[in-house]
Amino acid sequence: MIQPAQLQDRSPLGELVSAIAVEARWIIADTAVMSWRNLLRYRRSPELLMFSTLSPVMFVLLFNYVFGGAIPTGDLNYIDYLMPGILVQTTIFSATTTGVGLAEDLQKGMVDRYRSLPMARSAVLGGRVVAETLVSLFVAFLMLGVGLIIGMRFHGGFWPGFSLPFMVAGFAFGFSWIAAFVGASVRNAEGAGSLMFFVVFPLTFLSSAFVPIESMPGWLQWFAYVNPVTNAVDFGRALSQGGPIVANAWPTALWTLGMTFVIGPVAVWRYRKV
């Protein structure tokens, strides 16, 4: 038999501390459960798994072989130039799944069930975000593996190179909160999907991800320079190919923290208001 927790007499301060501790414990436990559920979807739907693994690999190959010969990237080999960019792009795209999935759940009324359970409200969103981030990490490693096979090399040392996929997944984690916010606001899977596409597409392409910014027309350059995706890609490139790490690290860190701690709570708040 499950019994509700006993209420005990405590000092006000002790009560507050323990309440926060209990809350935090459940947020973590519930988020873990929800992450698990979201990851299970990948196992049940080979389709989804194929799409999230095969198509990134396909684009690595296509960009390298089709455009590689036509895009001049200075001292770097195109594949060395491309990898950090395409990693960031792919993981951001995969982060949008968070929003689409959430909107789908809201549409189907699945969320009503979770909301009726005594679980942490943030866990539904957190679970998705964590699950997608884990998938992103996996995909990033997979793509790097393919990249290495077709000739990509690290020139920035072992540890910076090794940290590249984690940095990319971390940035995608921050981005997932934007997706969650869109999903909780739009509540219609198709709508959320296309809205996200029209945000992510320009954001990832109008950056230093695929071509040097200097080759773009002037009026596009300023957008590309302020684009946070450019920051993340440049940071990734510094990690894998050498270059100033700290100077590139802080804008990316700021953006990631901002998306997580500013957009994140707003997304949870929107979701609670459903």
């Binding site: 036509a70 001049p72 695929f210 071509v211 080759s215 773009m216």
Partner: peptide, 13 residues
């Protein structure tokens, strides 16, 4: 995308 973003780089070919 191809005209403005890639065009500068690819267009030379």
């Amino acid at each position: 995308l191809f005209t403005y973003v890639f065009g500068g780089a690819i267009g030379r070919s």
